[in-house]
Simulated scan of single mutants.
Amino acid sequence: MRRTSFAGWPCSIARTMDLLGDWWTPLVLREAFYGITRFDGFQQELGIARTTLAERLRRLVDAGLMEKRAYQTEPVRHDYVLTEMGRDFFGVLAAMNAWGNRWLSGEAGAPVVFEHERCGHHSEAAVVCADCGEPMTAADTRPRMGPGYPKRLAERPDIRERFTR
């Protein structure tokens, strides 16, 4: 069954979800941040079916988040290494981890915390304004049309209303 594609939607959240596609893809990226680079390592850590893993890795390579680097020629075997685009996804995973630690941790506490090597403290992701440094919350942040929003949609009254609430 073919799923709906959000790749053409004028929304970066929808486009990102179109790229991720399912729950396995962010977990593959998580393992890459943990230092896993080999197919068998991903498969062992995640317990994912080999065919599913092969598809997720192919999708990540095709999208530019990972690249394949041969480490053996007979037979050919590859490492899967994060690209700059892939490394930049860390903020998304860190935000998910912070949210999960706050809302889904049991009585024992957070299952995974991040240590910031520069200062040596355990910390978590925080969404802050890149201009003023203040926290951004749903209560004080509004979506607005960016320069890439399609003009044909921007002219629709329902769309204009959506971005002026």
Rank of each mutant, 00 (worst) to 15 (best):
residue 1 M to P: 03
residue 1 M to H: 07
residue 2 R to D: 07
residue 4 T to V: 15
residue 5 S to H: 02
residue 6 F to V: 04
residue 7 A to E: 14
residue 7 A to C: 10
residue 9 W to D: 07
residue 9 W to T: 10
residue 14 A to N: 05
residue 15 R to A: 06
residue 17 M to D: 10
residue 18 D to E: 10
residue 19 L to F: 08
residue 19 L to M: 02
residue 19 L to I: 07
residue 19 L to Y: 01
residue 19 L to H: 00
residue 20 L to M: 08
residue 20 L to T: 03
residue 20 L to I: 03
residue 20 L to N: 04
residue 20 L to K: 06
residue 25 T to S: 09
residue 25 T to K: 03
residue 29 L to R: 06
residue 30 R to L: 12
residue 31 E to H: 00
residue 31 E to T: 03
residue 32 A to D: 03
residue 34 Y to R: 15
residue 34 Y to W: 08
residue 36 I to F: 11
residue 39 F to Q: 00
residue 40 D to Q: 14
residue 41 G to I: 07
residue 44 Q to V: 12
residue 44 Q to C: 13
residue 45 E to T: 01
residue 45 E to L: 04
residue 46 L to T: 03
residue 48 I to Q: 11
residue 50 R to L: 07
residue 50 R to D: 11
residue 51 T to Q: 12
residue 51 T to V: 13
residue 55 E to M: 12
residue 60 L to Y: 00
residue 61 V to A: 01
residue 61 V to H: 01
residue 62 D to L: 11
residue 62 D to H: 08
residue 64 G to E: 07
residue 64 G to W: 07
residue 69 R to F: 05
residue 72 Q to W: 07
residue 72 Q to Y: 14
residue 73 T to I: 15
residue 76 V to Q: 08
residue 76 V to T: 10
residue 77 R to S: 04
residue 78 H to N: 10
residue 78 H to V: 03
residue 79 D to S: 13
residue 79 D to I: 01
residue 79 D to Y: 03
residue 80 Y to I: 02
residue 82 L to I: 07
residue 83 T to M: 10
residue 83 T to A: 06
residue 84 E to Y: 09
residue 84 E to T: 11
residue 86 G to D: 05
residue 90 F to T: 06
residue 92 V to N: 08
residue 94 A to M: 09
residue 95 A to Y: 00
residue 95 A to W: 04
residue 100 G to A: 13
residue 104 L to V: 09
residue 105 S to A: 15
residue 106 G to M: 00
residue 106 G to L: 00
residue 107 E to Y: 14
residue 107 E to C: 00
residue 107 E to R: 12
residue 113 V to Y: 04
residue 114 F to I: 13
residue 115 E to Y: 06
residue 118 R to P: 02
residue 118 R to F: 14
residue 119 C to E: 03
residue 120 G to P: 00
residue 120 G to T: 06
residue 121 H to L: 15
residue 121 H to W: 14
residue 123 S to W: 11
residue 124 E to P: 11
residue 124 E to M: 09
residue 131 D to Q: 12
residue 132 C to V: 05
residue 134 E to S: 12
residue 135 P to N: 01
residue 137 T to N: 01
residue 137 T to M: 01
residue 140 D to P: 05
residue 140 D to E: 13
residue 142 R to C: 12
residue 143 P to R: 14
residue 143 P to G: 06
residue 145 M to F: 11
residue 145 M to K: 04
residue 145 M to Q: 10
residue 145 M to P: 06
residue 146 G to I: 00
residue 147 P to S: 14
residue 148 G to L: 13
residue 148 G to Y: 04
residue 150 P to L: 10
residue 151 K to A: 12
residue 151 K to G: 02
residue 152 R to L: 13
residue 152 R to T: 15
residue 153 L to H: 02
residue 153 L to T: 02
residue 158 D to Q: 10
residue 161 E to D: 15
residue 161 E to K: 14
